[in-house]
């Protein structure tokens, strides 16, 4: 069976990001494999370690620098990788249309992708991919088991979680709680050099320039009132309730 793990490369969560009127300045920022996607890579490796006969293909759509994140996936245990290289920023729907073509061409049985992409905080890619492929999907998955031609999952809902079963092929979006990703070991980092990393051009997929264009970016700033409520606790609490009811109108 063939598993495809879709991954992105995003700024390190600990990196200092500079933002100005022209948008986010990524110059000099350290990039890493998106942590949400790493759960998918780890899960694919665990499915193999559990005795399933699987081939793991890492798939990424993005600029040349993504290669480092792809190498990380190969060092973690992916067997080979496909990199659709482009400097064009595509919206999630357009990305899904490109990625779906690769997934179909590969004849994959399952796609694992992060529940959310840490760069633009979008959670659309996984569901969009399922939509394009016409496959069932489970988002925010925290537990996954193969059962013959089906996959059984648990995923988070607003109030708890639910269990689902669905036929393969399927799209699974991953998140914290599904597993604890391992480190790529040094021997595997060295071995990853020799693994296949196929480069594809975005032009092959007729993506154009995407469905949406970013025309402006602004940094959100919040003015704070800085109002201090004074007096003994009972009086202060009463005043706070009055302010929340009458001025902020949130109660």
């Amino acid at each position: 069976m063939k598993l495809i793990t879709v991954l992105k490369q995003v700024p390190d969560a600990e990196a200092r990001i500079r933002a100005g009127s022209g948008g986010v300045d990524l110059d000099g920022v350290t990039f890493v494999i998106d942590g949400m996607d790493e759960y998918g890579v780890e899960e694919a490796i665990r499915l193999r370690e559990a005795g399933n006969d699987v081939e793991i293909v890492a798939l990424a759509l993005g600029p040349a620098r993504y290669e480092e994140a792809i190498r990380t996936a190969l060092a973690l245990g992916a067997d080979r990788a496909i990199h659709v290289e482009t400097d064009t920023d595509l919206d999630p729907i357009s990305q899904a249309r490109v990625l779906a073509q690769v997934v179909q061409h590969e004849g994959a049985d399952m796609v694992l992708v992060g529940g959310k992409q840490a760069d633009w905080d979008s959670a659309a890619l996984g569901p969009a991919l399922a939509e394009v492929l016409g496959w069932p999907h489970s988002d925010w998955t925290t537990k996954l088991e193969l059962a013959g031609a089906n996959v059984t999952v648990e995923h988070d809902t607003d109030d708890g979680h639910e269990s689902l079963t669905m036929p393969l092929p399927a799209v699974i979006t991953t998140q914290q709680g599904l597993n604890e990703p391992r480190y790529p070991t040094l021997p595997n980092i060295m071995k990853a050099k020799r693994k296949e990393l196929a480069k594809r051009s975005l032009d092959e997929f007729g993506a154009g320039s995407g469905l949406t264009q970013i025309v402006d970016q602004q940094i959100q700033t919040r003015e704070r009132l800085g109002k201090m409520v004074e007096g003994d606790p009972a009086t202060a609490a009463a005043e706070l309730v009055r302010l929340l009811q009458n001025e902020a109108k949130v109660l």
């Binding site: 480092e68 190498r71 480190y183 790529p184 980092i189 990853a192």
Partner: peptide, 15 residues
């Protein structure tokens, strides 16, 4: 090199 960046990232995370 790409390898060295991976080695650095591994060592940093490990530490």
């Amino acid at each position: 090199s790409d390898d060295q960046k991976q080695i650095q990232a591994l060592a940093r995370n490990f530490v």
